[in-house]
């Protein structure tokens, strides 16, 4: 860990526009700083700026950026109206980490790519222009969708996958004022600038996440991984399906562990919407999701794994009664 200056912010205004790395829960940033993957000169601690409430927002909710993962998952309104979000959060990390990690910080979580984590290895995300160690290397955990020749890393989190499916909106504030970014658009594809994980601009800070009105229906988050708990997703599927008269009136899908961002495919959702459920239809939806999917060798299995998991999740979500 490189030396840094530490200051504590007392209001969001202290942090917005500051030339410093923001630290909230610190569960990912400190992890990376210890390995010198991250080497900020200045840290500004926002744990005492407020923004730690879950509040009603019309029919929806406004979640402060400092709301801890545990609090968000256990929030009665979230459990009742947006159970997908609770389930996704609870599928991630450990209780200890969820107690510390924040809503904003979790959105900012960086990839788990082995080569990103190793300062002696090439990594275009960590050190632009140095190459990608994972291409041709050990890439079991890596992206099958939306990757580039520069980076095949995945976004490793769970919460944002649910937020993407739920059409959440992220409210940020920067020197130029406040703006909103759809959760589904918050994370980027790597392209030739993999060093940028998301659309947040320099000096901007996440203030809150807004959830639109509850969708109801069946909400399922299925996370497939190498051990039953405390492991990152190989593939995760977030699904919200509202059935009406034997047809899918609403179908929302998002996928984790497969791309540099939570993966959402409107075409797949449209395919399902208004249709009666069937394995053939689920398979066509999977075709749409997996359009352009490409394995890197060790992660080829993620392509059939996503297809199968999606089929099982949709079958469960469209069951008439449990």
């Amino acid at each position: 860990m490189r030396p840094f200056d530490y200051t504590r912010a007392h209001a969001p205004a202290d942090a917005v526009g500051a030339e410093a790395r923001i630290i909230a829960g610190g569960t990912n940033l400190l992890d990376l700083m210890k390995l010198q993957v991250e080497t900020p000169d200045r840290l500004i601690d926002i744990n005492h700026v407020g923004l730690d409430r879950v509040e009603r927002d019309g029919d929806g909710l406004r979640i402060g950026a400092l709301v801890r993962n545990s609090d968000l998952a256990a929030d009665p309104a979230v459990r009742e109206g947006w159970p997908l979000l609770s389930k996704a959060i609870l599928a991630g990390a450990s209780a200890q980490i969820r107690n510390r990690a924040t809503t904003g910080g979790n959105l900012m979580q960086r990839t788990r790519c082995y080569y990103f984590y190793d300062i002696d290895a090439p990594c275009n995300k960590r050190e632009p222009g140095s190459g990608c160690g994972a291409i041709g290397g050990n890439n079991r955990q890596h992206a099958i969708l939306g990757a580039s020749d520069h980076c095949i890393a995945t976004y490793p989190g769970d919460m944002a996958v649910a937020m993407s499916a739920l059409d959440a909106v992220i409210e940020v504030e920067g020197p130029a004022g406040k703006r909103e970014i759809r959760a589904a658009d918050f994370h980027r594809l790597p392209g030739d600038t993999p060093q940028r994980d998301n659309e947040l601009q320099s000096g901007e800070m996440i203030l809150s996440v807004r959830l639109p009105a509850p969708l109801g229906g069946r909400q399922i988050y299925r996370k497939v991984r190498d051990r039953r708990s405390y492991a990152f997703a190989l593939v995760s599927v977030a699904a919200v399906v509202v059935m009406e008269a034997g047809r899918m009136a609403t179908a929302r899908l998002a996928f984790g562990g497969v791309a540099h961002k939570p993966w959402r495919v409107p075409a797949a959702e449209s395919l399902l919407t208004g249709q009666p459920p069937s394995p053939e239809l689920f398979d066509r939806a999977a075709d749409a999701v997996l359009a352009g999917a490409r394995g890197q060798g060790h992660n080829d299995f993620k392509i059939p794994l996503l297809r199968r998991t999606l089929g099982a999740v949709l079958a469960e979500a469209t069951q008439e009664s449990k």
């Binding site: 788990r112 082995y114 984590y117 050990n138 190498d226 051990r227 708990s229 492991a231």
Partner: peptide, 14 residues
């Protein structure tokens, strides 16, 4: 490459 306890998976309680 997986030289940590997040990626070298020893069994967890569950």
């Amino acid at each position: 490459v997986n030289r940590d306890l997040a990626e070298y998976h020893v069994p967890a309680n569950l």
